[in-house]
Amino acid sequence: MTRNKKSASILLCCALMSSIATTALGQSSSLGFHNTVTGEPLDFNEALPEGRDTPGVKKFLETGVDPYIEDKSCLKQGEQIFLSACSGCHGHLGEGKIGPGLNDSYWTYPDNATDVGLFSTIFGGAQASMGPQYGNLTLDEMLKVMAWVRHLYKDGVADAPWFTEAQKKAYKPYQQGETFPDDAPGLCAPAKGK
């Protein structure tokens, strides 16, 4: 094989692998993951390598719906991540401090009323002090934080498009002090025997 053919073959292989990785991370999906401020498409190749291929991330990138909402095994983890990574600006209950409140029906960025919009803001950042979190949180951790933020919601279900109809019927506003068992079953529960 000549040097030019070999180089072309390597480039084609790299382009194919990049395309496969991009598709696996949902970049070519029609879900519309865009930077909240600039509108540019998000590059999930910038995400931390761990936490990319969990069942929850795969389902979210296919559907645009956070599968961890209402999953008690994920909510406990989401609360812990939120308290360490987000509460300094958004308050322990999402009531807002330096950053906007997250527990009511007003969204600084209206797209955040959807899971795709909120994920895009967490991943790519927003204005003021809200920098991109792709270097701080894994994709899976972002979904857990989103589930916790949705759980903190205290307003009416009519303004909560992330809820399914069944979730809207069963909705009860967050009660401070609520706890979850360490061994709650669900998508985020440790595998048996580990």
Rank of each mutant, 00 (worst) to 15 (best):
L143Q: 06
Q176A: 08
Q133M: 14
G124M: 14
G135I: 07
G156K: 12
H151P: 04
D155L: 07
P132D: 05
G135H: 09
V149I: 06
E141W: 15
Y171D: 00
A158W: 12
S129T: 15
Q167S: 10
P161H: 07
G131Y: 11
Q175F: 00
P181E: 08
L152H: 00
V157C: 03
P161G: 13
V145C: 13
A158I: 04
Q175E: 15
G135D: 09
E141I: 07
T164K: 03
M142I: 11
Y174L: 08
M146I: 10
G156L: 05
Y153G: 13
Q176V: 04
K144H: 06
P132S: 12
G156S: 09
P161Y: 14
L152F: 07
L143G: 02
A126E: 01
V145E: 07
V157L: 00
Y134E: 09
Y134Q: 05
E141K: 04
E178G: 00
P173I: 08
A126C: 11
A170M: 13
N136I: 14
G125L: 10
Q133C: 03
A170W: 02
T164P: 01
Y153M: 11
M146W: 00
M142L: 08
Y153S: 13
M142N: 10
Y174S: 03
G124R: 05
Q176S: 02
K172M: 00
V157P: 04
Y153P: 12
N136A: 03
F123V: 15
Q167P: 07
Y134F: 08
Q176G: 01
A166C: 06
V149S: 05
G131N: 14
W162S: 13
V149N: 10
V157I: 05
V145D: 08
E165F: 04
K168A: 14
Q167V: 01
L143I: 07
Q175K: 15
E141T: 04
G156D: 15
K154F: 05
T138F: 08
M130D: 05
K168Y: 01
L137H: 13
A158T: 05
N136G: 14
P181V: 10
V145G: 08
G124L: 10
Q175D: 02
L152R: 12
P181R: 07
A160I: 02
S129W: 07
A126F: 02
Q127A: 09
Y134N: 09
Y153H: 11
L137R: 09
G124H: 15
W162E: 08
D140F: 01
V157E: 01
K144W: 01
A166N: 06
A126L: 15
W148N: 06
T179R: 04
A166I: 12
L137D: 02
A147Q: 11
E165V: 14
S129P: 00
P132W: 12
G177M: 10
V157A: 06
F163P: 03
F180R: 07
M146G: 08
M146E: 13
E165I: 13
R150K: 03
M142R: 06
T138P: 07
T179N: 09
L139Q: 06
G125H: 00
E178W: 03
K154N: 11
V157M: 01
G177P: 03
W148H: 14
K154V: 10
M142Q: 12
G124K: 08
V149T: 13
Q127D: 10
A158F: 07
Y174T: 03
Y171E: 01
Q167W: 03
Q127Y: 05
K169A: 10
W162C: 13
